[in-house]
Amino acid sequence: MNTLRQFSVLPGFGLSLGYTLVYLSLIVLVPISAVFIFTSQLSLSEYWQVVTSPRVMASYQLSFGTSFLAAGINAVFGVLLAWCLVRYSFPGKRIVDALIDLPFALPTAVAGIALTALYAQNGWLGQIIEGYFGIKVAFTPIGILIALVFIGLPFVVRTVQPVLEEIDTELEEAASSLGASRWQACRYVVLPVLLPAIMTGFALAFARAVGEYGSVIFIAGNIPMVSEITPLMIISKLEQYDYTGATAIASVMLIVSFILLLLINLLQSWTAKQTGRNA
């Protein structure tokens, strides 16, 4: 303890750490460890059988794949939105700014039903897309992707926005006065500073998308091996009163998500170091 005290300049380290650990345990660790305790009722081979059955495997691919893609799309367009909101002023800017948070506030089931109504064969957008391009959106994995993009959007915008606000336009002006083209200024001056924030936003959007149920379930179509997301597999286990099977799949989701988030965090701190910034 003595050594710790020496390192800490701020008082109250013990108290705040204690509080942090207790709070985290109550809110996060205890419920999550319940998942693993429930799962441990299965033997290893039973566990393996449950979590690798063909339908479940197909659902992992779909859930993690679409979540990753959706987070990627949000990373690109979220930055554009944040850029527009920070750098320009236009009438109604505050309204646009508020609109971005709507996916947070809307009950996900409402979002799901609205999106389905819009993109179904007889919906406004669905009609056009299917009529002109021959692409079915609702009740296919594309529909799932759209729902996940919708719910993940605020994460990237809200993490990038404050960082972008802090960047002085003078930096870009300096770059351009030193002979950099507009593109070079963006690529070598602005982007490196933004990158850690973009990755945080990406990670949040991804994590949210992996666990999403309400908005996806209406638009997915839920055809086994094609458009069943992993949370639906958990629900169908529960409908069969297979509590341990449900927690087994949940544990896989938790472990994979945790590893992916850890990797993204590591990558983020690495890029932060590279660009000499503490994110």
Partner: peptide, 21 residues
């Protein structure tokens, strides 16, 4: 021949009635 498998009965009715599928 089943294009959409809703998770519950009311959802299926919606798909048939509202979505026109």
């Amino acid at each position: 021949n089943v294009p959409v498998l809703d998770s519950g009965a009311r959802g299926a009715t919606n798909t048939f009635v509202q979505r026109g599928i």
